[in-house]
Design a binder for these strands. Structure first.
Lengths: 196, 196
DNA sequence: AACGCGATGTATCGCTGCGATACATCGCAG
DNA sequence: CTGCGATGTATCGCAGCGATACATCGCGTT
């Protein structure tokens, strides 16, 4: 899902690997880093897929002595038309893949570029996912509570509270979101709206 | 670090893969699952390394028709002497590897089997690690705040608060821990104590 | 003037773990 | 007697991480 993040970032301006990684750190914050070990291979894959292209141009600015081995200028990437299409497609994605732990954060940072309806759907999906998990854990916990030592119990408690906290956060966001949208009809509008 | 978790679980009683996984879910709770995709290969690796051994015995209880293809009874594993050694070694580990995101939870669930001094050291290490991360994010955030849209900002804020929360939790735990131990001298005892 | 160090920059390698999937058996409810 | 959900073992491809290597640039110190 690094792909989505990269696409989103490049949509604003062309960037090279290093910069991309800085931005990734800046936008994702506490959530993840996306090391170079994933970035560069992904960039290559995306280039091969035709979603992004190398935007040579200011390479000579840096290239003081480019004749060493096989040149070493910075490689600036920018979105292609296909890339933009792909981005739009991924941004419209409001299915389970969007509310998974690893993916949700990325989607969230791109909410400014996301359709309001999709935003709400992702937020709600994420919340259900979390609630499911919480109930699952609670159930297992109820069954096994007796067997567990106090440390493990404390960990469970803490984990459960964390989930609770995120659920509450999401709920607030959803309400704000609803308030800010023209409120198209009440409750579950549904009736689909361009599902791929 | 599934290895540590498995070692810790098997230290209490012999178990087979499926059961191991149930226990893993029960003890780790919200933190992770450890799918079969990691469990079984790990089990094999550990067996090959000599840390665990297959404890055949009640295989015939289940084996109604064992002659099918190449038998299919449950495989019960138990700790070997080497396994116990390895467990003790890993349990004494209080270095950076113990306070990483993925590892910390596992260490924590095994705290009942861990030396009190090591417990405190892990807790403190984890806290510093978190504080470092928080400051790092805060710094980047201060530098880039202006460029970020409100959604991204909210994500940052939420993430930061989560980290804060865990730091507070750890602080409480550390205090409790100190209170419960005979308090060997005051503050940073240090002077080392069997570092591998 | 020389030195080195930290930021910038691209890239690879091995490893851990995940999710999906396959397959087989058992006990039980309809 | 039929099928379904729990029990049980196992593999495959993939994403991402952390460590590492290497090269250049701008900077302040000595």
């Amino acid at each position: 899902m690094l792909e989505l993040a990269v696409l989103g970032l490049l949509h604003e301006s062309p960037l090279h690997g290093y910069e991309l990684r800085q931005r990734l750190k800046a936008t994702l914050g506490t959530f993840r880093a996306f090391s170079y070990g994933s970035l560069y291979p992904t960039l290559r894959r995306m280039r091969d897929a035709g979603w992004i292209a190398e935007d040579e141009g200011d390479a000579e600015v840096v290239a003081g002595a480019p004749a060493l081995t096989g040149r070493r200028g910075k490689v600036v990437y920018k979105l292609t038309a296909e890339g933009k299409e792909k981005l739009a497609e991924l941004l419209a994605e409001a299915g389970p893949s969007a509310w998974e732990d690893e993916t949700f954060g990325v989607h969230f940072t791109l909410f400014a570029q996301t359709d309001p309806e999709v935003r709400v759907r992702i937020l709600e999906g994420r919340r259900s996912r979390l609630e499911e998990r919480r109930e699952g854990v609670r159930a297992t916990l109820a069954r096994t509570r007796a067997r567990l030592d106090s440390y493990t119990l404390q960990l469970q408690e803490h984990g459960l509270e964390s989930v609770d906290r995120e659920v509450r956060w999401l709920t607030e966001l959803i309400e704000t979101e609803r308030k800010n949208t023209p409120a198209r009809s009440t409750g579950t509008t549904s009736k689909k709206a361009a599902r791929p």
